[in-house]
Amino acid sequence: MANGTISKPENRLGIVGWFYAGSFSFERYAYILHRITGLGILLYFLLHIFGSSARISGQSSWESLMHFLGKPIFVAGEYLVFIAFCFHAMNGIRLILGELGFSIGKPGRPVYPYRISLNRQRPLLVVFMIIAVIFILLGGYDFFIAGH
């Protein structure tokens, strides 16, 4: 630094790199979505522990809390948590299978064009995402159309 030199730029992508680091496939974005939905669900869950404890203080405090949480903004928020849960659960099954080595194939000879573990588990990803979307739609029907 003394003689005008600049120290080596670190060039680490940082948290931006969790979200975007180039033209990668869907799995990379499933990774960050898994993280965001996980944090969202955790936050909701912590509030939920306190909220549902209202049931031990009797009917009136329970019902006033439920009345308060019946506002559209809270219902919409809850639906967001429901969506997050559907995604996190379905993607989670895929990750458990993949990370324990069940859906990603075996090592072989790398012959061009290379087929990698990511390609091998992709059908699973598609299936689980379709299931997640079905649950999200069913939930939407229940949340907004069929009552409440």
């Binding site: 799995e27 990379r28 993949g98 990370e99 080595g101 090592p107 061009y112 290379y114 990698i116 573990s117």
Partner: peptide, 25 residues
Amino acid sequence: HFAGSCSEVCPKGVDPALGVQLLKG
């Protein structure tokens, strides 16, 4: 967490993500 980007960019078809998941297992 099996984002798989390493395997996507590997120029030699090494598929390091496969290795890491198999290592965990």
